[in-house]
């Protein structure tokens, strides 16, 4: 039971954005995927979640090869992602954004809807209950009637996670959930992600905030220009000379040891 990425390669014209990347995410674990800007993290997400096709390599979910399948089919296997550019249903309310996330867990048919059967009404009640729970979990309870467009930036980021979370992922892929948040919001997010950790699902986390990554990840995969630079526990990564070299030598904004 795991999400396996095997020898994944992706070319954009002459540019090799990913070259032979392999790693795995198991339920109950948080895996960090880090690397400097342009290292290929989002490309990796896109290929794994069916938004673009790999040049070669495979993606396996719980023993099934799902390479190149469209994203909605992957979602049905429990592979759910968020987007680096925060992505919501802008004209829908906060409440409906989250309810949309329950689409694949609906318990009523189209006929139930059109004839307003009891099955449908009870299912909606159950849905609303779950939505309330998730809204509380992510501190959005007071905002449920507001159009997603009109939320603050931080709230939008949290709503995007709520939408992903309620769809009951088995593997949740988060692309820079803390980008643009202030330090306090970041540490709040960090602790709510840590508290979300359960045997139900695994998380693949792309994040530039090293403090967060080091704190909550069980395992870290480091990319550099599309290649695998290092793999290991946070402690191993912190002391890995190649990683330190890449981060410090490249003069990038983050430092592995930043606290």
């Amino acid at each position: 039971m795991a999400l396996f990425v095997e020898e994944l390669t992706k070319d954009f014209g002459g540019l090799r954005a990913l070259s032979g990347i392999s790693f795995s995410v198991e339920p109950g674990k948080i895996v960090g995927l880090i690397g400097t800007n342009g290292a290929g993290k989002t490309t990796c997400f896109n290929v794994v979640t069916g938004f673009s096709k790999p040049t070669s390599g495979r993606v396996m979910v719980d023993g099934t090869d799902i390479t190149g399948k469209p994203s909605h089919q992957l979602a049905r296997k429990g592979v759910i992602r968020t987007f680096q550019q925060t992505s919501l249903f802008g004209k829908l309310t906060v409440y409906d954004n989250v309810r949309a996330g329950l689409h694949r867990h609906r318990g009523s048919s189209a006929l139930d809807v059109l004839f307003n059967t009891r099955k449908y009404r009870e299912d909606e009640k159950k849905i609303n209950q779950q939505v309330d729970n998730v809204l509380v979990q992510l501190g959005l309870m007071g905002r449920s009637g507001i159009q997603a467009d009109e939320l603050s930036y931080g709230e939008q980021k949290r709503l995007a996670i709520a939408v992903a979370l309620i769809s009951k992922p088995k593997y949740l892929l988060l692309d820079e959930p803390a980008a643009g948040l202030n330090p306090q919001e970041t540490s709040e997010l960090s602790s709510s992600l840590a508290s979300l950790r359960s045997d139900q699902f695994g998380i693949l986390l792309v994040e530039h905030d090293m403090k967060m990554v080091m704190e909550i990840c069980d395992y870290i995969v480091v990319l550099a220009s599309g290649k695998l630079l290092a793999k290991g526990t946070p402690e191993e990564i912190r002391t890995n000379t190649a990683v330190i070299e890449a981060y410090l030598g490249g003069g990038k904004k983050e430092s592995v040891n930043s606290r």
Binding site: T49, F51, P70, S71, H72, A75, R76, I80, R81, F83, S87, L88, F89, G90, K91, L92, A100, G101, H103, R104, V163, A164, S167
Partner: peptide, 10 residues
């Protein structure tokens, strides 16, 4: 409102 997001949640 958002086709990629819709497909990402199934």
């Amino acid at each position: 409102d958002n086709e990629p997001l819709a497909s990402s949640i199934g």
